[in-house]
Design a protein around this nucleic acid. Structure first.
Lengths: 186, 186
DNA sequence: CATTATTTGTTTCGAATCGAAACAAGTGTT
DNA sequence: AACACTTGTTTCGATTCGAAACAAATAATG
């Protein structure tokens, strides 16, 4: 009874955050979708920086995503880099202008201020409940949870360092902190 | 250091929820904004069911909101009712078809399933931290927090029942559970 | 009480977005 | 070699978006 309400509260926060982001995007002359794309590209890992992954992440059709990317490219926010192994694929990279717009659109002040109030009001509250809630949500969402690499079922630690159990590739600490489209909740 | 990250986690949840909502809206042939409008109208109180309030809530321009409402009216989801006291104002009401679409678009299953996982994994976690986080976010957002009537600074309890300290009007229990544009965090 | 400002909502315009479907090109399978 | 599948683009028409101009009602001012 009580637990279901948690996600209603989260939804309210989501609406508030969305509203703030929308206002900032309008001031910057971009659409809120563009912000979401830039934000995703700034956080995703090398397996997940393709138009197809974006399509899954945003829940849009690939045609629409293609158009959005075209515009972001024209505006000089992103760059397309062909994949060396698979000639169909394209990797998307944020360029300097993209990072700058992202920085300006991100409601950092709001988050910092909110965190301040929260800290003052109940200093004993840690981030544990929120991380648990996110994990549960990802588990419920199934399919592609787009979680952080380091929290994945296939993330393994060896004496030599981190590895991805799916691709077998070694991973840096930075890699482990990024969003992966293949992410699977343990 | 740790508290600021809480809102990053919340933002990730927001993105996940948004993605699910977008998919559902596409299936229903509506835009995600339409869902947001219907959702808001289903939760707001009688002081907050106007185009102007929606404009503030969504962070859009009033022209755009006007167009969106026109379409929702054409589709038979909402109805416009003129205000009796102020002839400029219009009140927006959800009609049966609107409620039905809202019900279909709302990611209830996702929330229920997530709540189930959360309950199983850490039964001791209550909704308190989440409500605190929401309150802090509303406080940080200032201006119009669009909070629940019952959590407002001007919400007062008298022997005769609930009252709004701003308008002086009596409020039912149902009123106190709705979103108000005049909401002020204590 | 008349004039002026402000609020509330609509209309109009052009650029941009959206989803659907067709398309092209590369990869994998049989 | 033929076929299916994946990946991304193009094209189309309906819709959305923000900006600015507009109309009407209310509030404020003198």
């Amino acid at each position: 009874m009580e637990t279901a309400d948690i996600y209603k509260v989260i939804e309210r926060m989501a609406a508030l955050i969305r509203s703030e982001e929308r206002k900032r995007c309008t001031e910057l002359g971009i659409q809120i979708v563009h912000f979401q794309v830039l934000d995703y590209l700034s956080r995703c890992n090398k397996y997940s920086d393709t138009p197809a992954a974006l399509t899954h992440y945003l829940g849009m059709t690939k045609g629409t995503v293609s158009q959005t990317l075209l515009l972001l490219e024209r505006k000089g926010f992103i760059r397309k880099v062909p994949d060396l192994a698979d000639k169909r694929m394209v990797h998307l990279q944020l360029v300097a202008e993209g990072w700058e717009v992202l920085r300006q659109a991100y409601p950092k002040d709001l988050f910092n201020k909110a965190a301040e109030f929260l800290e003052k009001n109940c200093p004993e509250v840690g981030d544990a409940p929120f991380i648990e809630a996110l994990t549960a949500l990802q588990k419920a969402h199934q399919s592609h949870s787009f979680g952080l690499c380091g929290t994945c079922k296939y993330f393994t630690t060896k004496p030599e360092g981190f590895f991805c159990g799916l691709t077998g590739e070694p991973l840096t600490k930075s890699d482990s902190e990024k969003i992966c489209q293949e992410h699977t909740v343990p």
